[in-house]
Write a protein that binds this DNA or RNA. Structure first.
Lengths: 245, 245
DNA sequence: GGTACAACCTCACGTCGCGTGAGGTTCAAG
DNA sequence: CTTGAACCTCACGCGACGTGAGGTTGTACC
């Protein structure tokens, strides 16, 4: 009754691995059972099981099967170095995961703040985010996020709704040929500046990044119904605001 | 000179993708160029490029190519739901990554505290960690980690060196047949209890977990040179400590 | 027109850690 | 002697391409 040797099924049951996995380990030479029955059934000895437990330990630490084989193969390796290398990799992956979560989280919040969005809006939003990540520093992005949090979803919704109206009004004046220094345009320009300030927080670095974005990626502005002509018109209106009446 | 259409190489260069990747997208039907030259070279139109930019956006959010194809295929999907599902997945993966990093970090610290370790020590340490994670609650693990931090590497080193000596001394007394109530054994038992207390912090929950671990996994104790007989001897010595002289 | 050489094309296999059959043999119990 | 569970050996599939192999096309220069 000396059942010290186990068959695959038994071993699989005890370790939680699949039979196929054990077959695989055998195939790649990671864990070859030291005995077989006459008919070819695998028999795992106590030693094999000990080796397997080492394998599982290393697997839990995220090592690949190849690395595990190598590690168990030679006894002269530096454990600390191996672990530190693996830790470094894990840290990098952790940072990536964090970034991904942040992105998804921001996006989810933006979507919750918006009206039910069309597929096109959705993709536009993602692209806008990508642009942001390209032109703003991580610190600036954090600041923006903080301001968004502080404003709350409803306020964001309002601003998002106001922009198209404001742009449309401005375009109307431009097409009517209204003087940028005139009172109605001054009012629009003032509001325009307020909204931009609300976004940049009056931070000059932030304003610069926003400008760069618009210069390098004109299609972003165009999607919002703005074009170079309108931008120039707004620019003139802003200049008039600064100049005394 | 209307070069609005791009060849693969050009497009690859501009997007940072590989030519092979674009071929792949073509193969699986994710992005089929809308035109070809007479000789079969792929020509990507502005529309194709727009689609590709959508693809890359979604890819950046961690969606699989299949999911991307599906998402771009129908316009009636709920953007928020899709993103929230993806976010959930990402959060789970993040938690796993965190755990992995913690494990590796603890291990690295343990290894730094220890003398240059043999392969066997290394594997034993990992297995001990696995046991710990199995028998202690996450809060208990945190507490242990905090205590380790507070002790510092050198103190840990000392304790790790003292245990084998203490166990050896105790075994010696047992084999000599010394009375567990005798003075030398009382001294050893006192130190034994101190070391255990230093580990458990006097926390009864922690002591219980430790006991469970030793009961369920006797091989852990055995590796340290302890066996049931020694455990029983120590138990008697402890009882004598509590009883008045 | 010829001759490089870069850029393009289409197969087609390799990666990693197994899952999932297919199709056949062996074991243990009734 | 049968039955059903457990075992065996192939061998393909996944996901997102990398990496050649081997051949054609495009472009520049002589």
């Amino acid at each position: 009754m000396q059942h010290t040797e186990l068959k695959v099924g038994e071993l699989a049951r005890r370790t939680g691995l699949s039979v196929r996995a054990l077959h695989h380990y055998d195939e790649i030479g990671l864990l070859k059972p030291s005995a077989h029955t006459a008919s070819g059934h695998r028999l795992y000895t106590a030693e094999d099981i000990a080796r397997l437990s080492h394998i599982l330990s290393l697997k839990q630490l995220g090592f690949s099967l190849e690395e595990i084989a190598e590690t168990l193969g030679r006894a002269d390796f530096s454990a600390l170095r191996v672990v530190e290398l693996r830790l470094q990799r894990a840290r990098e992956q952790l940072a990536e995961q964090r970034q991904l979560c942040d992105r998804l989280d921001s996006l989810a919040r933006l979507l919750r703040a918006a009206e039910p969005v069309s597929a096109d809006d959705f993709l536009q939003t993602i692209e806008a985010m990508t642009m942001f990540e390209k032109y703003y520093t991580p610190e600036q992005l954090k600041e923006l996020e903080a301001r968004r949090q502080a404003m709350g979803d409803d306020a964001i919704k309002e601003v998002q709704a106001e922009w198209p109206r404001l742009i449309a009004s401005m375009r109307e004046e431009m097409e009517k040929g209204t003087d940028p220094a005139s009172e109605p345009v001054r009012a629009l320009a003032t509001r325009w500046r307020e909204l931009v300030r609300a976004f940049t927080g009056g931070n000059p670095g932030m304003e610069k990044s926003l400008q760069t974005l618009h210069q390098q990626e004109p299609q972003v502005a165009q999607r919002q119904g703005r074009d170079p002509k309108l931008t120039e018109y707004v620019g003139r209106a802003m200049a008039c605001l600064d100049a005394p009446k």
